[in-house]
C-alpha cells in the first residue's frame, strides 16, 4: 500500500506547530478519510469538525495545501502526494484547537440581519402562488451549506479584519436570498449600506471561486445588492426626492 505524509496543525488558540503523520492511502480516499485514519491510528485527540462526509453540511472546511476546501470532498488523487499535504484550519477566524476554528462570529452576524417578513397570503387556500422561474434565483442562494469558505478567502475579513464593519460574502448571499424572496416585504438596503458594509466588497470574486456549492456569489448576489443600494442612496433624483420628503 502507498503511504502519504500529512502535515497537520496541532495546538490551541495561542501556540501551534505543524506535525507530520504518515498513513496508508487507498483508492478514492479524501482528505477527511486520511484525518480519520490518523485519529484512529496515532492521534486520537486530533480535533476536527465533520458531519455528513458528503459535502452537504459544511463542517469540515480547512486549508489544504493553502487552498480553502471541504476535506470530505477533496480527493487525494487530485493533490500531489510526493510531498507532505498541509492541513490547517480556516484562517479568517481564530483557531480553537488543531483544525477547529472559532466560527461563532458568523452566528452572531446572522442574527443582525432582518428576518424574513412575508406578505399576507393572497391565494384562496390561505397560502401563496410562486412560479418556479421566480424562485430559481433564491434557490441558488439557499443551496449554501454555511461552510464559511467564502468568508475565509474574503480579503476584507482575512487580511483587513473588518469583522466589525463587514458581514462577508456568506451573509450578503443570505441577505440576497431574503431580499429576492418573492414573498418578502422587508427592506434591508439601508442596513446593507450602513451596518453590513457592502461597500467594502470590491468584486474580486475569490468567494465565488471557492464556493463548493457553485453559488455565483458575486455576480448573482452581491452585485445586484450593490445596485439596489446605489439606486436607493446614490441616484441623484432619489436623493432629491428624499431631501424633500425629510422636510
Amino acid at each position: 500500500m502507498k503511504k502519504a505524509t500529512f502535515s497537520i496543525r496541532r495546538g490551541g488558540r495561542e501556540t501551534a506547530e505543524m506535525v507530520d503523520y504518515q498513513t496508508e492511502i487507498s483508492e478514492g480516499m479524501v482528505v477527511l478519510d486520511a484525518v480519520h485514519q490518523i485519529q484512529a491510528e496515532s492521534a486520537p485527540d486530533l480535533a476536527c469538525r465533520w458531519n455528513c462526509k458528503a459535502g452537504k453540511c459544511g463542517s469540515c472546511s480547512a486549508e489544504i495545501n493553502g487552498m480553502p476546501k471541504l476535506m470530505c470532498m477533496t480527493r487525494l488523487d487530485t493533490i500531489p502526494l510526493d510531498q507532505p499535504v498541509t492541513i490547517e484550519p480556516i484562517r479568517a477566524f481564530p483557531p480553537i484547537k488543531d483544525l477547529i476554528a472559532d466560527v461563532s462570529w458568523n452566528y452572531e452576524v446572522k442574527k443582525r440581519i432582518k428576518k424574513f417578513k412575508p406578505r399576507a397570503p393572497d391565494a384562496e387556500d390561505g397560502t401563496w402562488r410562486m412560479s418556479q422561474e421566480d424562485v430559481d434565483r433564491v434557490q441558488e442562494f439557499r443551496k449554501c451549506i454555511e461552510c464559511f469558505l467564502c468568508q475565509d478567502v474574503c480579503h476584507v475579513l482575512r487580511d483587513h479584519n473588518k469583522h466589525e464593519e463587514f458581514i462577508g460574502p456568506r451573509f450578503l448571499v443570505y441577505a440576497a436570498a431574503l431580499e429576492m424572496h418573492p414573498l418578502d416585504t422587508e427592506d434591508r438596503t439601508g442596513d446593507l449600506k450602513d451596518m453590513h458594509g457592502i461597500g467594502y466588497c470590491n468584486i474580486t470574486k475569490c468567494c465565488t471561486k471557492v464556493c463548493p456549492e457553485h453559488i455565483t456569489i458575486t455576480d448573482n448576489a452581491i452585485i445586484p445588492l450593490k445596485e439596489r443600494v446605489v439606486d436607493e442612496y446614490y441616484d441623484p433624483l432619489k436623493r432629491l426626492v428624499r431631501l424633500f420628503r425629510k422636510k
Partner: peptide
C-alpha cells in the same frame, strides 16, 4: 485516551 480534555475526539469516541 491521550491528551487533555480540550476538544478531544478520542474522549468523545
Amino acid at each position: 485516551v491521550p491528551g487533555n480534555i480540550d476538544f478531544n475526539p478520542g474522549w468523545h469516541t
